[in-house]
Amino acid sequence: MSQTAHIPSHRKPRRSASKLALRAGVAGGVLGTIAVAGAAGPASAEPVTETIEMPTLGSLGADLSSAVAASAEASQQEALDQSLEAQEAAALEKAAKEAKKAKAEADRKAEAERAEKARQEAEAKAERERAEAEARAEAQARASRDSARSQLATTAASDSSSGSNSSDAGSSSDGGSSSASESTQAASGTAAAIVAFARAQVGDAYVTGGTGPNSWDCSGLVQAAYAAAGIDLPRISYQQSSMGTSVSLSNLQPGDILYWGSRSGSYHVAVYVGGGKYVGAQNSSTGVVERSLDWDPPSGAVRIL
C-alpha cells in the first residue's frame, strides 16, 4: 500500500466545463472591449484607469432566473386569459341557446293560450245560443201548458158533480169495468186544479230535491200540485202516502196520490189524472211524464180530497 494513501487531497474541486466557459467568455469579451478602445485612442492618450465592474456569475444566474420566471408568469397569464375567453365564449353560447329556447317556449305558450281562449269563446258562444234556444222552447212549452191548464180548469168547472158521481158508482159496482169508466171520468173542483197543474208540468226536468218551477222530483211535483189547489202536503214521498185514506187501484179518482213501495215507506209518488193515467216526475232520463198505469203499475193509492 502507498504511504500517501490515507493523506487527504488538498486539491480544489474542478469547476464544470460550462461554468469555466461562461467565465472565460465574459472575461474575454470585457478584455476585448478594452483593447479595442485603447487601440482607437491617440498614441499620447493616457492609459485607461477606469475600473470596470465585471458581472459575476451569481448576478447572471439571478437575472436569468428572473427572466425565466417572468416568461413563465407571462405564459401562465396568457393561458389563463385564453381559458377565461373560452369560458366567456361558452357562457355566451349557452346563454344564447337558453334565450332561444325560452323564446320558443314563450311563443308556444302564447299560441296555446290564444287557442284556448278561442276555444273558450267558441264554447261560450255555443252555450249562449243553446241557452237562448232552450229559453225560447221553454217559453213556448210553458205557454202551451198554461193554455192547456186554463182549458182543463174551464172544462172541469163546467162539468156537473152528478155526472162524476154516477161514474164513480159504476166503477164501484163492477171492478172489471173500471178502465171503461175511467176513460170517461173527468176531474172537477179541487181535483181539476190538481190534475191541471200536474199536466202543465209535463216535459219539465227531473232533479233530485227539485220543487219547481221548471224542475221537480216526484214528491216535489205532488206537493206543488196540491198547493195549487190550496192543500198543504208534507215534502217527503212516504209522508204523503201515509196521509188520507187508502183506496183500491180499481176505484181511483182524479187527484188521488199513487205510491210505489209500502204506504208508510214509499219511494215514489205520482198524481192520478183519470183515464187510467198518472203524471209523475219519474227520473232524470224521462223528466215529468204522463203514463198509463200499465207502464209502471203502482203499489197502492191514497185519497186526500
Results as ranks from 00 to 15, higher is better:
Ala281Gly: 03
Gln240Asp: 05
Thr33Gly: 03
Ser147Lys: 08
Gly189Asp: 09
Arg119Cys: 07
Ala86Arg: 14
Lys109Thr: 12
Ser16Arg: 08
Lys125Asn: 13
Leu152Asp: 10
Ile231Lys: 12
Lys277His: 11
Pro213Glu: 09
Arg119Phe: 01
Gln240Asn: 08
Ala141Gln: 07
Ser162Ala: 10
Ser177Cys: 02
Thr211Gln: 14
Asn251Asp: 09
Ser59Leu: 12
Gly209Arg: 10
Gln140Cys: 06
Ser167His: 01
Ala187Thr: 08
Ser150Ile: 04
Thr190Asn: 06
Met243Tyr: 04
Thr155Tyr: 00
Ala37Glu: 11
Ala180Met: 10
Val247His: 01
Glu132Phe: 09
Glu78Pro: 01
Gly163His: 04
Leu305Pro: 01
Ala126Gln: 12
Ala270Ser: 09
Glu121Arg: 13
Val26Leu: 13
Ser167Pro: 00
Gln239Cys: 10
Glu290Lys: 06
Tyr238Asn: 09
Ala281His: 03
Gly230Val: 06
Leu249Asp: 03
Glu93Met: 13
Met54Gly: 08
Arg114Gly: 08
Ala118Arg: 14
Leu249Trp: 00
Ser66Pro: 03
Arg235Pro: 05
Gly230Tyr: 01
Leu64Thr: 13
Glu132Ile: 10
Arg130Pro: 06
Gly276Thr: 07
Gly244Leu: 11
Ser285Thr: 14
Ser284Ala: 09
Gly212Ala: 03
Gly176Tyr: 06
Ala187Lys: 04
Gly280Met: 04
Asp159Met: 01
Gly274Val: 08
Ala79Val: 09
Pro234Arg: 00
Trp260Arg: 02
Glu127Pro: 05
Ala90Glu: 15
Asp168Phe: 01
Glu88Tyr: 13
Leu233Asn: 07
Val207Lys: 03
Ser9Tyr: 02
Ala37Ser: 11
Gln239Pro: 10
Ser44Cys: 05
Lys117Ala: 12
Glu123Thr: 07
Leu152Pro: 02
Val26Gln: 08
Gly28Thr: 13
Ala95Met: 07
Gln76Arg: 15
Ala137His: 12
Ser66Cys: 06
Ala157Leu: 07
